[in-house]
C-alpha cells in the first residue's frame, strides 16, 4: 500500500473513466490529460486502464509501504525521492518506506503517478475514477491509504517506450464547429478564431471558464447531451469549456467542440494561461 502524508492541492485516483452510464446521469470522469495518463501506464507495461494518481497544481507527499515500481508523467512538479531529484518519464524502482514528494507545477498543471499493476482502490460502475456520490472517497486526503499490487517478480520489464518531454507551452486548441456555431454572426466567428482567451480562476475537473466574454444573445436550447470539450456559451456571453467531470447534459448553446488532443492540452493549463482556438469543420 501507499500512504498519503499530505495531499497536495487536488489529488485523485483516475483511469480512463466510466463509460456507458451517462443515461443514469453519471459523468465520464477519468484522467484530464489522457495522453500523459496513458504514458504513465505504458512506462510500466500496466494494463491500459490501470488507475493512477492525478495531481493538480501542487503534488502530495507519499510514503510507500512496500517495494514496487513507479513512473511519473505530465506536468513537472520537481519530484524528489527521499530528498533527491527524480527523473520523470521512466520507470523507477521503489523500496519499502521510500518517501516521494512533489512541489508546485512548474510547467503544465497535472502530473500522473502510475504504480506497477495500478492502484487498487474501489471500482464502481467499471471505473476507479473518484467522483462525489459514486466512489466512497471523492478525492485523496491526508493519511489516505491506497492498496497496490504485491510485487510478484523481481526482474523488471518495462521502459518500452521512449518519448520526449511533453511540451506544455502549446496553446492552440483544435476545435470543431458546434451545433449552434452557425447562429453566430461573422464578427463573433472571427473573434472566436483570432482572439486570444485567458483561462479564468474558475477552472476545475468539471469545466474551465474563460475570462473574456462574447457579446451576443443566443437562445437557450432544450437540454441536450454534451461531451468533455464542449464549449458552451451562457446567456451572459461567458464561455465555459466542459471537462471530464462535467454533467452529461447541458442547456447552453454549444459553440465549439474540442478534439481529444486539445482537451489533453487544456488539462495542462491553469489560471491566466492564454488560449486560442483553431476552428475546423468536421466531415
Amino acid at each position: 500500500m501507499i500512504e498519503i502524508i499530505n495531499s497536495g492541492f487536488y489529488t485523485s485516483v483516475q483511469d480512463k473513466g466510466r463509460i456507458g452510464f451517462k443515461n443514469f446521469g453519471v459523468p465520464i470522469s477519468g484522467a484530464m490529460d489522457q495522453q500523459s495518463f496513458s504514458w504513465a501506464n505504458r512506462l510500466l507495461n500496466n494494463l491500459t486502464n490501470s488507475a493512477v494518481l492525478e495531481m493538480s497544481f501542487k503534488g502530495p507527499k507519499i510514503c510507500f509501504h512496500e517495494d514496487t515500481f513507479i513512473a511519473i508523467t505530465g506536468a513537472f512538479m520537481d519530484p524528489k525521492l527521499n530528498g533527491f531529484s527524480l527523473e520523470m518519464n521512466k520507470p523507477i524502482g521503489i523500496k519499502k518506506m521510500d518517501i516521494l514528494q512533489f512541489g508546485n507545477a512548474i510547467s503544465g498543471s497535472r502530473t500522473y503517478l502510475s504504480v506497477l499493476g495500478g492502484l487498487q482502490t474501489q471500482k464502481i460502475l467499471g471505473s476507479r475514477s473518484q467522483f462525489k456520490g459514486i466512489t466512497t472517497i471523492e478525492r485523496i486526503s491526508k493519511r489516505t491509504v491506497i492498496p497496490i499490487k504485491k510485487l510478484s517478480f523481481n526482474l523488471f520489464k518495462g521502459a518500452v517506450i521512449k518519448h520526449t518531454m511533453m511540451n506544455f507551452d502549446k496553446n492552440i486548441l483544435t476545435a470543431y464547429e458546434g451545433p449552434e456555431f452557425n447562429l453566430l454572426p461573422e464578427n463573433i466567428k472571427h473573434q472566436l478564431s483570432f482572439q486570444k482567451f485567458h483561462l479564468s480562476h474558475l477552472n476545475n475537473r468539471m469545466g474551465y471558464q474563460l475570462k473574456e466574454k462574447i457579446t451576443i444573445k443566443l437562445p437557450q436550447i432544450w437540454t441536450a447531451p454534451v461531451l468533455p470539450g464542449t464549449v458552451q456559451c451562457t446567456p451572459e456571453g461567458k464561455l465555459i469549456i466542459l471537462m471530464q467531470d462535467a454533467q452529461v447534459t447541458g442547456g447552453y448553446s454549444r459553440l465549439l467542440q474540442l478534439d481529444d488532443e486539445a482537451i489533453n492540452c487544456l488539462a495542462q493549463k491553469g489560471t491566466n494561461d492564454l488560449l486560442q482556438f483553431r476552428i475546423k469543420k468536421l466531415t
Binding site: 463509460i19 443515461n23 432544450w222 437540454t223 441536450a224 447531451p225 461531451l227 452529461v248 447534459t249 466531415t283
Partner: peptide, 21 residues
C-alpha cells in the same frame, strides 16, 4: 459505446475511429 438522450436529441458515441458520415 453509448447513446445519451436529451429532450429532442440523441448523442451517439462509438469506439472505433471516424466512421464515415
Amino acid at each position: 459505446s453509448q447513446i445519451t438522450v436529451g429532450y429532442h436529441s440523441l448523442l451517439i458515441e462509438w469506439n472505433k475511429k471516424n466512421l464515415s458520415k
